[in-house]
Design a protein around this nucleic acid. Sequence first.
DNA 1: CTAATAGTGTCTCTAAGACAGTATTCC
DNA 2: GGAATACTGTCTTAGAGACACTATTAG
Lengths: 252, 252
Amino acid sequence: MTLTRHGRAPAGYDPSAFPSFAVTVDVVVLTIEGGRLQVLLVQRGLEPFQGSWALPGGFKRPYETLDEAAARELREETSIQDAPTLRQLGAYGDPGRDPRMNVVTVAYLAVVREVGEIVAGSDAAGAALVSVAEALDGALELAFDHGRILADAVERARVDLEQTGLAISFVGTTFTLAELRAVYEAVWGVTLDPANFRRALIAEDGWIVPTGKRAQPGPAGGKPAELYKAGRSWAYGSPIRRPRRAREKGAR
Amino acid sequence: MTLTRHGRAPAGYDPSAFPSFAVTVDVVVLTIEGGRLQVLLVQRGLEPFQGSWALPGGFKRPYETLDEAAARELREETSIQDAPTLRQLGAYGDPGRDPRMNVVTVAYLAVVREVGEIVAGSDAAGAALVSVAEALDGALELAFDHGRILADAVERARVDLEQTGLAISFVGTTFTLAELRAVYEAVWGVTLDPANFRRALIAEDGWIVPTGKRAQPGPAGGKPAELYKAGRSWAYGSPIRRPRRAREKGAR
DNA sequence: CTAATAGTGTCTCTAAGACAGTATTCC
DNA sequence: GGAATACTGTCTTAGAGACACTATTAG
């Protein structure tokens, strides 16, 4: 048979008439630690990428959706049971991206407060949280095209931080305004004015709800910060806009 | 063999140990005609979607990238030889999305000034430009999950119109400000003030460059509009921001 | 002439941003 | 007390938006 105009096989198709692929799902798990954006990477003992780091991932199964496959991979490799912010980044299918076989991978972005216990697998030489800056500047050898995927994921996180309520996924159920501000500062690489940040959040109801409790001050002291929980408005967007003229991080 | 922790087959893998898929590429071609956003759809004579409309698309081949596959499909079905704005939307792999076989499709968005001659294929009962509003409100029966893909494409276009220089892809090499404004109005479904629109574009150099020529007025008369060409700044973004409080289209 | 479209000038109001000053903690 | 962090109040300014007005065409 020949391929039809649409490239799809008609009703009585012959499976040998079109190329077949393995389809995998890779997950970029981002979190904030020490005021810096971090990504979860695993190290594998397998050729031809022995010793290099890779994103966690695995095969899609025929009877699950892509979203379900990503959620399953996340559950299998971390102690994260439920990641509401698991979102698709895109598909990567360059020929030769996996030298062993014909693989199209679909990348996902997950944003979590903490990674928790990392589930050690049989073939994993290790797994670690790595600074995104380090992973992207070439200091770390990344397998496949995972460097490109990671770069795309970070760019997506920067956009979503402004367009969606992604920010609260980085913090716990209760948080201080300084913690929330640190999320924006780490992902965007900027410094935000604490006073204006607060004002944007309390200008309208729905962003933050006071709990009445206070956080413990750090070792250097300071006034104890109020603890808030997230309001309903995060379902629709973010109260903080990305600064047009980015103030360098650390500048004042 | 068993699947490894990463779900990938190790060096001496057995191809029968993981599920295989057909990978297709579908292209959402958007254009503006008559002040309305339109999409290119094809009608097919094949079961089980006989009589329904679908996005143009076809199989990815092993030795091309996904981007190349999308560009090839676009060339094969329209007279568009080169679409600089061909961008990936995402992957769609729900089980059963194609009842005939196991298919993961990767959707692309192309924005063009005009579709030109539509290349008729052997199995295509027809091809047409259809209003996006009509295609999405259920008036038209769309095959597979192409309704969802189209909805995602339109949402992406709305975002990219603000974040990137997508707008000039909708117009020709020279254009009037009214034409350019119509792009923003059609995609966002809003009415923009012509005066403020002009001001945003001439506030900085780099957005529009006067050609010295003037367009012919329409049948209703009016002052002939200056013809401009696009400046360099469109590579980095858009001078027009999406209105926060959307004025209804047609309101004044 | 009127209707229609292109283009100019100007006013108002909001929100971003800068920053001085106060409150409460640790040392 | 001083240093550090949390929080409040206020001023300035850039930009979005509204809209009156002028210019040039078709009929």
